[in-house]
């Protein structure tokens, strides 16, 4: 009897285990409608509420304030070495959430996917209740764990709380070169929700904790929804005319010649070429 019961239970369990993955129950009514194409509102400066560059007033430590000033000086002289996207590296977190190109958010119960058109930047936000893994491979987008909250108690989630760790460098906050600490111990916390007054506006309150900062830095970014989507592929390497050789930034001209980006910039060292063949 025991064996019959056990075998019967085993068979039932096996049948159920085949049926359950097939069912893939997804009660979509529990999740907010974030479908469509999200286009950033406001400028591309990291804090859209403040002027770009010096006007950002990031709470940097003195050491990193000096690094930022050196980056701005390089930018003013025509260089881009401090700015990783200039060499087609991803902006990474949190800069990718500036959404220079339109963004799509795909909500599923276990994972919320965020795709930003610029350089195909892509995030997975795990909402399956997992703990932080003991080890994760550092990534520009980091490793994100999220939690859904039904803040207004209407039986439907409305806020996604996200924490992101495990970022790698080089990264900067924005094009003026506001730096992160070189130890890459950045932690980013986000609160993502629709604007209660306008469901076609998405709000991301982003707080960055980083050893280059004297305190957590919070900015609020907003995106407007376009329901009639038109996705354009952006491939950085396709049209990038910057060339990086050692620590120098050069340009390739429209007619295919190497050009300086700064006044009196020396040309690249050609010692590895057999000059006698010229």
């Amino acid at each position: 009897m025991l064996s019959r019961y056990s075998i019967g239970s085993g068979a039932l369990a096996a049948a159920l285990s085949m049926a359950v993955p097939g069912a893939l129950a997804f009660d979509e009514t529990k999740y907010p409608d974030w479908k469509g194409q999200w286009i950033r509102i406001g400028p591309g400066a990291y804090d859209p509420a403040r002027p770009g560059g010096k006007g950002q007033q990031p709470p940097l430590t003195a050491e990193y304030q000096a690094i930022w000033e050196a980056n701005r000086a390089e930018e003013a002289a025509g260089g881009q070495h401090y700015n990783p996207p200039a060499r087609c590296l991803p902006a990474g977190m949190p800069r990718m959430m500036v959404a220079y190109e339109p963004m799509e958010i795909i909500v599923t119960p276990d994972i919320t996917y965020v795709h930003v058109g610029l350089s195909n930047e892509f995030r997975r936000i795990y909402t399956d209740g997992r703990d932080w893994p003991e080890r994760y491979e550092p990534a520009f987008a980091g490793y994100s764990i999220g939690r859904w909250v039904d803040e207004d108690g209407d039986g439907r989630y409305d806020v996604l709380l996200v924490e992101t760790r495990g970022m790698k460098g080089p990264r900067v906050f924005e094009a003026s070169g506001i730096p992160f600490h070189e130890n890459n111990q950045t932690v980013v916390k986000e609160r993502i929700s629709l604007d209660k007054a306008n469901s076609n506006v998405l709000i991301d309150e982003i707080t960055t904790i980083d050893n280059a900062l004297t305190r957590p830095w919070t900015v609020t970014r907003k995106y407007r929804r376009e329901r009639n989507t038109n996705w354009v592929e952006f491939v950085c390497a396709e049209d990038n005319t910057y060339v990086f050789v050692g620590k120098e930034t050069y340009f390739v001209s429209a007619d295919g010649y190497l050009m300086p980006t700064k006044k009196d910039q020396p040309p690249p060292d050609l010692r590895y070429f057999n000059q006698s063949r010229k």
């Binding site: 001209s253 010649y257 050009m259 300086p260 009196d264 040309p267 070429f273 000059q275 010229k278």
Partner: peptide, 10 residues
């Protein structure tokens, strides 16, 4: 051949 450096001042 190395790249043509005609656009450099030097």
């Amino acid at each position: 051949p190395p790249p043509d450096l005609r656009h450099f001042q030097s």
